[in-house]
Nucleic acid binder design. Sequence first.
DNA 1: CGAAGTATTGAGGACGGTCAATCCTCGTGG
DNA 2: CCACGAGGATTGACCGTCCTCAATACTTCG
Lengths: 242, 242
Amino acid sequence: MTRAMTEQPTRKTLPRLDESLLTHLPPFSRLEKRQIRTILDQASSRRYEAGVAVFNEGDSAERFYMLLDGYVRVVRITPTGEQVTALHIPAGQLLGIAKAIGRETYPATAMTATESIVLSWPTSLWDTFVAEYDGFATETYKTLGHRVGEMNTRIVELATQQVEQRVANAILRLINQTGRKVEGGIEIDFPITRQDLSELTATTLHTVSRLLSGWEKRGLVESKRKRIKVCDPHALVVLSQG
Amino acid sequence: MTRAMTEQPTRKTLPRLDESLLTHLPPFSRLEKRQIRTILDQASSRRYEAGVAVFNEGDSAERFYMLLDGYVRVVRITPTGEQVTALHIPAGQLLGIAKAIGRETYPATAMTATESIVLSWPTSLWDTFVAEYDGFATETYKTLGHRVGEMNTRIVELATQQVEQRVANAILRLINQTGRKVEGGIEIDFPITRQDLSELTATTLHTVSRLLSGWEKRGLVESKRKRIKVCDPHALVVLSQG
DNA sequence: CGAAGTATTGAGGACGGTCAATCCTCGTGG
DNA sequence: CCACGAGGATTGACCGTCCTCAATACTTCG
């Protein structure tokens, strides 16, 4: 299913980013304040609307990024224009790290799922970061390992599970990563459409809609436009196991 | 393929592995003969039957491996015992490189698809290899990047393509990687069952069988037990695009 | 208020999975 | 050398899941 994609404006160097932005993030956590200062001074910062591309599949990998706030979907677009979400990236992680896997171009497109704040550095600094900053390499490779694991899981799910289970799993994962306790359940704390869910689970928005309607009748979830609240997580877990 | 080889059940340090085994393989190609000698002297060599596990998902990653000859499938096994093939690894590549992605355990099981010859080193040597051997790190991360790309492709395929296209794609990939020209076409040069293909493409052996029968009637392929010969690759490509 | 994006729901049917029976191929051991 | 058994392959019948097509309604925003 083809979707519209809006273009987005300028990158800018903010006056004095605060060190505390990075100190608690794994790739930088072992560094001294002075080093973090240097890193921040080389960074560009930028805010993105929801639903825009941070970079596109095939672009030459000129920068790498740290997602400070928000949520990014890593998607691939098929020749026929369908989007497939390969991965979700939460705040606090690096993205666009093509250099780490020996690539010159980005292997997929990164789209913001919500409004997001992103730092970025030119890829030419990558080798310096790896060489000079203790723990940076180790942590980024851990991130990579985690993502490989997720992709593996996704492959297994797609290969063996029914649509209902995949959708249940996707929702559970979302509330684990970004769930917010609200009265009467846990809510996915950013706007997500049936279409988004269908791209996550390789089905159609129609099927997702039918499933959610059914679950709502049975009291498992409540949902309004772009909002999903899980009322009975345990029942969802049961469903997700088949 | 090295079919006839002496029995060699346990791992052992062979008398004098020849340097030429490694000199042309990317991770080692920039090294001097002397360095390769050292590397080989630290290696264990072992022969595996077809269809056995080199290591298992979840095992602590005590060694990393170089596949010298043969073919390995990286599979995951679901709670219900189904196998899903996530990746295929041809001779000349490293495997079991959990350390490269910051893991202590193997994320999947590696099963030989054919009789295979494998070198291995204790994971404790990993850091030394990365530090001392020029190009080793770069090349292994390229391999990793390539695998991530493959996994991505697989996700997209599973998410968007019909079974017929997936099976066609799988066969095309296999003949690209391991095809051998024979009279009247190209043959996958190791034994592969309908079951194997079905695990590669997330379908059932019945469906694969039906597809191959149909293609055979139309002259696209010929197949006997465990053997598949592609007679009209172009037609398969057309099929694979839908 | 209109327009665009989002969601719901029904009807129909194809793809491909399940069940089941049969046949073929190959290796083993008598 | 032949018989047997096990693993592999083929094919048919049936049917459920989920996709496609289609119509309609709701929500938000300019």
